[in-house]
Simulated scan of single mutants.
Amino acid sequence: MKKLSLYLLSIILLWGCAQGQPENHSFAKLPEPKTGEKVATFAGGCFWAMSEAMSELKGVNKVVAGYAGGIVKNPTYERVCEKNTGHAESVQIYYNPSVISYAQLVEAFFYAHDPTTLNRQGPDEGDDYRSAIFYRTPEEKATIDAVMKKVAATHHYNNPIVTEVTAYKALYPAEVYHQGYYKTHPGSAYIQSVSEPKVMKMRHAVPQLLKPEFAK
């Protein structure tokens, strides 16, 4: 059984997030917020799962997968996977603050991945898969700190939260084929084995924050 488990893990690693086959190398566009919209930026492992999880929240109008937190401008997926850009796979969330608050987004984020593993999410390892929140204002920083304490107090996680909290500088949109990858590749072994459990975990943790079609 142990040999079988190791074999299955090797298959997941081989076809994991860093091994996605490109279908369109052009880059997605980063839209300007619409009137009344606000923007939040998170990193929590492979952006295929995080994009889907955040898009399922009520009040979220759009999610763009991209790269943030690094030192290289306009990086490619292949360059980020080399683990020398400092970037993390990230998501930029466009949301309606009258429907969902920044605090609620942060709370959902903490349940959409494991914020206690340093530079790793499941089979994905490296600083490009780190847990991070990029705040834009001192008020957002205070909100993050408060929500982090709230989540820690629930003892949902056995280990301390190690999420990086840092000021937002830029997000570079990822290639088009990464956008909505979860929905367009439901048969992928990686999506089924790694991404879907993360999305389901968030659904179970914060059902009150989901759009009606996902709150089942």
Rank of each mutant, 00 (worst) to 15 (best):
V99L: 03
E56V: 09
S51K: 12
G70E: 00
F110C: 15
N84L: 14
I100D: 00
E107R: 14
K73S: 10
H113E: 08
E37C: 08
I100Y: 01
A18M: 11
G20Q: 03
F47G: 01
G20K: 08
T41D: 01
P33G: 08
A53Y: 09
S55A: 07
N119D: 11
L14Y: 15
G126V: 00
T35G: 15
Q104M: 07
H25Q: 13
W48R: 09
D127K: 09
A108D: 01
A43M: 11
D127T: 07
L14D: 04
D124F: 11
H87G: 02
V99Y: 08
G36R: 12
G59Y: 15
F27M: 10
Y67N: 01
Q104N: 05
A43E: 01
T35Y: 13
S90G: 13
N61M: 07
Q121M: 12
A68D: 00
R130F: 08
S51I: 01
E37T: 11
G44A: 06
K58Q: 15
Y102C: 06
E56R: 12
D124S: 15
K29H: 14
G45P: 15
V72N: 04
V99Q: 04
V39L: 01
Y102V: 00
D128V: 12
G66Y: 03
Y95R: 05
V63Y: 03
T35E: 09
H113A: 11
I93L: 02
G45I: 02
Y77W: 07
A103G: 15
G59F: 02
T85L: 10
T41A: 03
A65F: 02
N24A: 08
K58G: 13
I100L: 05
H25N: 09
G45K: 06
N84T: 07
S131A: 13
R130G: 11
G45F: 08
T116D: 10
G69A: 07
G16Q: 14
S98D: 10
W48K: 10
L105Q: 10
R79A: 08
W48S: 15
C17K: 05
D128P: 15
P31E: 02
Q104S: 14
S131K: 13
